[in-house]
């Protein structure tokens, strides 16, 4: 290690260092200051207001809505996406041929822009669409999909599930491929075959994949913006009002920059706490199956 290599090292790392100074460190401290002001993004005059923004946020109906909507989404999204991606992974894993082809095909939704998929969803559930006509003619059902809070939330959740299920399936697939053959052979001797084998051998062996997918899925629910922004605008009755939508509305529609930053900080704390709790729960569940 000499002076010259040290210089080269810092020089090659410099894009990261410069970038982080401007686009990470400065905004980081600026945010911590902004959150305690009442700045409205435009006027040159503003003052510090202490923790008032945080207190206002905790009592704000829209922040509370974002808080609960996220868990409501999670309650639907996590089971759907885990069951779905596990099934896709099992299908791909057991196919004798064209595994790669199907894996790639199932991954395609991940490439879609949320805006484009919102346009398709809007068309598919529009009043005169073939889908709704079919529901009316065959079942006599006349459903206003985006008019009902529960259904609107379900539509957003299903859009997210469609997008991510093929991606998460790849995680389960790599988990499935890493289970040694001997484990299955030993299980067969013990009489575990068919669904019994899936339930008692495969699923417990997949614990690391479950762990990763659950944490990713939980984290994802705190970062939803595009789909509700385009399709529902957060409604009806705040039923699809996510954290990011709330922060965007406060800071850039109502121009409450200080308050919006405070909400962003609260959002981050809630996110960290939720992920922490999920990790602990998963580790407890894994511990019972011999995973540390």
């Amino acid at each position: 290690m000499n002076k010259h290599t040290a210089k080269v090292g810092w020089l090659l790392a410099s894009p990261y260092l410069i970038y982080s100074a401007i686009f990470f460190l400065i905004p980081l401290f600026w945010a911590l200051y902004l959150a305690f002001t009442n700045w409205n993004l435009i006027s040159p005059e503003y003052e510090t207001v202490g923790v008032q923004n945080f207190i206002d946020a905790l009592f704000s109906p829209s922040v509370r809505a974002a808080f609960w909507v996220t868990y409501k989404f999670m309650l639907m999204f996590v089971p759907i996406v885990i069951a779905g991606s596990l099934i896709l992974a099992l299908i791909i894993h057991h196919l004798p041929r064209w595994k790669g082809l199907f894996a790639v095909g199932y991954f395609l939704p991940y490439l879609a822009s949320g805006v484009a998929s919102a346009i398709v969803v809007k068309g598919v559930i529009s009043y005169n669409s073939p889908f709704n006509q079919f529901l009316r003619d065959v079942f006599g059902l006349d459903i206003d999909w985006l008019g009902s809070p529960t259904l609107a939330a379900l539509v957003i959740v299903l859009m997210m599930a469609w997008k991510f299920v093929g991606y998460y399936a790849l995680l389960f697939l790599s988990g499935l491929e890493s289970i040694p053959k001997e484990v299955y052979e030993a299980a067969e001797i013990d009489g575990a075959v068919g669904w019994k084998r899936v339930w008692h051998v495969t699923i417990p062996m997949l614990y690391p994949s479950f762990y990763t997918v659950t944490i990713l899925a939980v984290g994802l629910m705190f970062g939803i913006f595009t789909e509700p922004y385009v399709l529902t605008g957060g409604g009806p009755e705040y039923a699809t009002h996510t954290w990011q939508l709330e922060i965007y509305n406060q800071a850039f529609e109502k121009l409450n920059a200080g308050y919006g930053t405070a909400v962003a900080i609260i959002n981050s704390i809630v996110t960290f706490a939720s992920i922490f709790i999920f990790r602990k729960l998963l580790e407890k569940w894994g511990g019972r199956h011999g995973w540390e």
């Binding site: 040290a6 090292g9 790392a13 982080s20 980081l28 990011q244 962003a264 981050s268």
Partner: peptide, 26 residues
């Protein structure tokens, strides 16, 4: 190999898990 490499590595890891939404407005 250069002095401070581990430090840069740690900074990157920290930044990766830092919630970017806080930075949006600034």
């Amino acid at each position: 190999t250069f002095k401070g490499r581990q430090w840069v590595n740690n900074a990157i890891l920290f930044q990766m898990f830092y919630p970017s939404i806080i930075l949006l407005i600034p």
